[in-house]
Design a protein around this nucleic acid. Structure first.
Length: 222
DNA sequence: GCCAACGTTGGC
DNA sequence: GCCAACGTTGGC
C-alpha cells in the first residue's frame, strides 16, 4: 500500500475536508508574532496548547512507497524519493488501510515525514518530505481505471484520504531497515516501523526522528 | 518466489 | 460478534 505515480487526474476535485475535523490552530511558527491580516477580527492565536510536542507542534511521520516498478492489476506501480524530487509536490494516494488513513488525517501542514522505500533490494529510509496539504479525499479510489480503485468509496462519502507531500531532501546516506533493526531492542524499540511492520503510514517520535537522522549522518561515505 | 504476520471478509 | 478462510504486505 503506497503511493503510486498516478496517471494524471483531476487533482482538485474536492478541496475541502469532508470530515469536519477542521482545526483552527495553525502550526505555531514559534515566536513570530502573528499579525492579523487586514482584519482585526482575525482569530487570535495565543498559546501553544500542545506543549508536549517539541518542534513547535509539528509531528513526524513515516510513509512507505515502492521505488521499483511492479505490475498491479495491469498498472505499473512505482514511486521513489527521486520521483518525488522531480515532481516537487505529489499527492500520496493509494493508502487502503484504515489505520494508515487515520494517521494521514492527523497530519498537519508543515509536519515532516520520512520517505521509506519498501519492497525493494535495500528497504530503508531514503529521505525527508513535508506535508504540503492536509488530508482530503483520495480521488483515485473513485477512478475505475486507477490501480487502487475502490468501488466502495463514494464521492459523497469518501472512504479513503490522502495528503500532499513536498520533497525536502535525500538523506546523506540511506538508512536501511537492517540497520534500524539493530536498535529494535534499544533506541528504536517502540518504533512503529519495527513493531508494526506492515503499517504504511506511521507516526515517528521526535526521539526516533533525531536518532535516525543521526544515523544518516554517520558512516556517511558511500 | 517463499512465506510469516496480520488485516479483511463473510458464514453462522 | 466470533473466527476460519482468505488476501495482502513486504522482508528475506
Amino acid at each position: 500500500m503506497a503511493r503510486t505515480r498516478s496517471s494524471g487526474g483531476s487533482e482538485k476535485l474536492i478541496d475541502d475536508k469532508l470530515d469536519g475535523t477542521k482545526r483552527a490552530v495553525a502550526p505555531l511558527r514559534a515566536k513570530v508574532t502573528k499579525k492579523a491580516r487586514t482584519s482585526k477580527s482575525a482569530v487570535k492565536i495565543e498559546s501553544n496548547d500542545t506543549p508536549e510536542v517539541p518542534n513547535h507542534g509539528a509531528s513526524y511521520w513515516l510513509l512507505k512507497a515502492e521505488p521499483d516498478t511492479r505490475i498491479v492489476k495491469g498498472h505499473e506501480v512505482k514511486f521513489s524519493i527521486d520521483d518525488l524530487k522531480e515532481m516537487k509536490v505529489s499527492p500520496w494516494d493509494g493508502v487502503r488501510n484504515h489505520e494508515a488513513k487515520k494517521n494521514m488525517q492527523l497530519m498537519k501542514k508543515g509536519d515532516l515525514a520520512f520517505f521509506y522505500h519498501s519492497n525493494c533490494k535495500v528497504p530503508g529510509i531514503a529521505g525527508v518530505m513535508k506535508v504540503a496539504k492536509e488530508a482530503y479525499p483520495d480521488y483515485t479510489a473513485f477512478d475505475t481505471n486507477a490501480v487502487y480503485y475502490d468501488p466502495k468509496s463514494d464521492k459523497n462519502n469518501p472512504k479513503w484520504f490522502m495528503v500532499d507531500v513536498e520533497y525536502v531532501r535525500h538523506l546523506k546516506r540511506m538508512v536501511p531497515l537492517t540497520e534500524i533493526k539493530e536498535y529494535a531492542e534499544s533506541e528504536l524499540k517502540d518504533m512503529a516501523l519495527v513493531r508494526r511492520g506492515r503499517l504504511s503510514v506511521a507516526k515517528v517520535s521526535p526521539k526516533e526522528w533525531d536518532f535516525i537522522l543521526n544515523l544518516s549522518e554517520q558512516k556517511g561515505e558511500e
